[in-house]
Design a binder for these strands. Structure first.
Lengths: 256, 256
DNA sequence: GCCTTTCTCACCTACGTGGGAATA
DNA sequence: GCTATTCCCACGTAGGTGAGAAAG
């Protein structure tokens, strides 16, 4: 199964290669479509980005890894814990890409945007085993783009690896976070996005074409503590770092 | 204190960016001078490498970090353990570089060559608390070049960081090692070398100028088990991972 | 009361140490 | 005997888990 593809053409912007600096991507964010607003895909080569190696077009296809695992969370309403110091996502966001131009260079990016339509953005609460709308969304937070650490690399290199993993991305609710983690509002719904960018150099990323892929089953609500115990149990059952909480029957866990 | 500088001009060679593949650097190794053979430094810009950004010359100076620690091992005869699966060096090999061209791009490399002159290459044994010559050296092993994982980066980036660390390089005695670790003969003497290469791209590394820096105090003998107990004690005293063997007096270590 | 956030903790994963017994 | 190597282990470092108490 492949993600929804959207093309967009971010304009010029300030350069820089520090992924912590949100200004680098500010113009890009403003031109990336919102996941709720459908857009007809355009052909990538309408306007050639200048100064990039052009060894011919490509026809990238993206698959989400761990689709079954994501689905099992999604059916109950995925929750992701956010903390002051930053918390990883589980399941991890991993993709596999085919159809790239083997010789061209690409950067692989990920970000997390509001899942609700901008005009209907809301906060949620968990009440009587159900998620309910609890009012209008809190103010937007600084957006951050996570650049896969192996960027840039050739299409051949991206396609040959078992997967493109974003497991090191961390979520936080600390609006002054100094580590470059992704800042989210608790009790809000989010949609991870995957971006393929053809460029030789991170500093030229603003001049190149973004292709954005969205997998609905990776939507989640950010929480500071799990609300749905079915989600908790899925995390314990599948995340190796939570193995200490398994054996649900007998010994389970010592009291402190 | 700065290392000994030698310049060399590796010729054309097959391209590729997989650091595991020894063929990539085969022509480079053959042109890098042996540490025991003095050579008059040449001016770097004698012949300009083609296709590389040339924002002016640089005058790189390299310092070895942890010089005192290296010296304390060197006075007793440094030993490094090699294992089938690969073992890190301790002390770690770390440098600091100044005088690079801030805008130019560089790759930072490290390799480990025989410390003895080729015609006098030998194996050693440890007998009665002393290292002695024990015959002619074993056949040479495939040479591998360790590319610092942050390569390539600008001179500015290399100079701004606290140090350029090669702590992840691993030593092995497994001649069929599949991980790209550095393969050494046990009971032979070695000399680590640090290389600065000006190039925009690892795949063009064969066309560019190598500058090689050698610090005598990093010489060591490869062993499968420590021979000199003074070396063992220095490792235990300074390597955080060996903390479990400290407290030499009382409790020391439980028997199994 | 309720809801949400923060903090510490035991318990994991993953892997870097030298010791020491077993092996060659 | 002797020497060198291999293997497993207790014990570290480093850091990712949810639980549960406490605080807001």
């Amino acid at each position: 199964m492949s993600g929804i593809l959207s093309n967009s053409y971010p304009g010029m912007g300030p350069t820089g290669i520090n992924p912590i600096n949100e200004h680098m991507f500010s113009n890009i964010f403003s031109r990336l479509q919102h996941p709720q607003i459908p857009q007809i895909p355009k052909k990538e080569e309408e306007k050639k980005p200048d100064n990039e190696d052009d060894d011919g077009p490509d026809n990238a296809k993206v698959n989400l890894e761990n689709m079954d695992l994501w689905d099992s969370f999604h059916q109950f309403g995925t929750e992701m814990v956010i903390t002051k110091t930053g918390r990883r996502m589980f399941p991890s966001y991993k993709t596999r890409v085919t159809g790239l131009n083997p010789k061209a260079k690409y950067c692989m990016l990920m970000d997390i945007s509001a899942a609700d339509e901008p005009s209907l953005s809301r906060r949620y609460k968990y009440h009587n085993t159900r998620w309910m709308v609890a009012g209008k969304a809190d103010p937007e937070l600084p957006k951050r783009m996570y650049v896969h650490p192996d960027s840039p690399a050739t299409g051949e290199q991206w396609m040959n690896r078992p997967c493109i993993s974003f497991h090191k991305l961390k979520l936080t609710n600390n609006i002054t976070d100094p580590h470059g983690h992704t800042i989210l509002n608790s009790m809000h719904k989010y949609q991870p996005r995957f971006h393929i960018v053809r460029c030789n150099d991170l500093s030229r990323i603003h001049m190149t074409t973004f292709r954005t892929y969205i997998f609905k089953e990776t939507q989640f609500i950010a929480v500071t503590a799990y609300q749905n115990e079915k989600i908790t149990q899925l995390k314990i059952d599948h995340n190796p770092f939570a193995k200490g909480f398994r054996d649900a029957g007998a010994g389970k866990r010592e009291k402190r």
